[in-house]
Amino acid sequence: MGRAVVARAVDIAVGGAILVLPSGEPVSSRGASLLAHARMLPLARSLAAAGAADGVVAHVVRYARRGWNGTEASLASDARWAAEEIGRRYGDVPVCLVGHGMGGRAALHAADHPAVTSVLALAPWLPEDDRAAGPEPVRQLRGRRVLIMHGTNDARTDPELSFRLAERAKKASRDICRFEVHSDGHALRQHHAEVLALAGDFVLGSLLERAYSRPVADALAAPPPLGLRMPLAAGFGRSLRP
């Protein structure tokens, strides 16, 4: 798992941990991708810096293997191992899983770890429903706060699949919402500032039991499909500054 991406003051106890999960590949026995790891560092640093004064730490998970590998679900297994490692390093602290692409799927699957209290899935890679394998599981999301964010122009992971998952998950847990980033693609670069602001609002609100911004609170409270097709407004985050 490695060191925290932003050092905290030694006199501040750890109050929560963020595990950032890079994307991967459908099938591969190769080791972790250094490029995928590097792509998640800016997000991890942003979240860690925003929560440092409250003792929040962030780690980018380095997978043993970069492939999901069918029923092995290797990335989800590594996410659970990392959540266990958080407990060994910092004690009984809440954990938020933040994943992008296939890392988003790993975050959703690994929500069953008892230390995990919240999940942020960015443009999650989700397979089409497979009759043999069955639909993606959602029961593990009960008791967790979940936010899914997806660009409407994502050409790599289908935003409609994340909506369908959110729709099923909402029946298992009311604390789930989904935001659509209109005109943005898989990397969510076009509205990068708004994406970072929404991520920070949800992650730190979940870990530190802070009040969410009005859009997040409304999305969590709204019945489907309204709370699952919430648009991420341009300029989100600027209105949150003092």
Rank of each mutant, 00 (worst) to 15 (best):
E180K: 08
H182T: 12
H100G: 05
A197M: 04
L126A: 08
S118Q: 08
A64I: 03
E167H: 09
T157C: 04
G15C: 02
P127D: 15
A107Y: 05
E128D: 12
L147S: 01
S239H: 13
L232Y: 10
S23A: 11
G185I: 06
G16L: 03
G2N: 13
Y212A: 13
T157H: 04
I18G: 02
E85H: 13
A111R: 03
D78W: 00
G15R: 06
R45L: 09
L141C: 07
Q140M: 08
C177S: 10
A193T: 15
G87A: 11
A50Y: 04
A219T: 08
A73K: 12
A36F: 10
V14T: 11
G200R: 14
L21I: 03
S23N: 10
W125C: 01
R105E: 07
G237D: 06
R229C: 09
L35K: 12
H150E: 00
A187W: 03
V195F: 04
A107K: 05
D112I: 13
L147M: 13
L141H: 05
D184C: 02
H37Q: 10
A49T: 09
G24D: 15
G15L: 01
I86Y: 02
P224L: 02
P231M: 14
W81G: 12
G143K: 00
V57I: 15
D175M: 00
R80H: 05
P114D: 14
A219E: 06
V57A: 11
R39V: 07
R45A: 11
R229K: 15
A50N: 07
S23W: 07
G2T: 13
W81F: 12
R144C: 02
V6T: 05
A50C: 09
V138I: 08
A222C: 09
R66C: 08
P124E: 05
E85W: 12
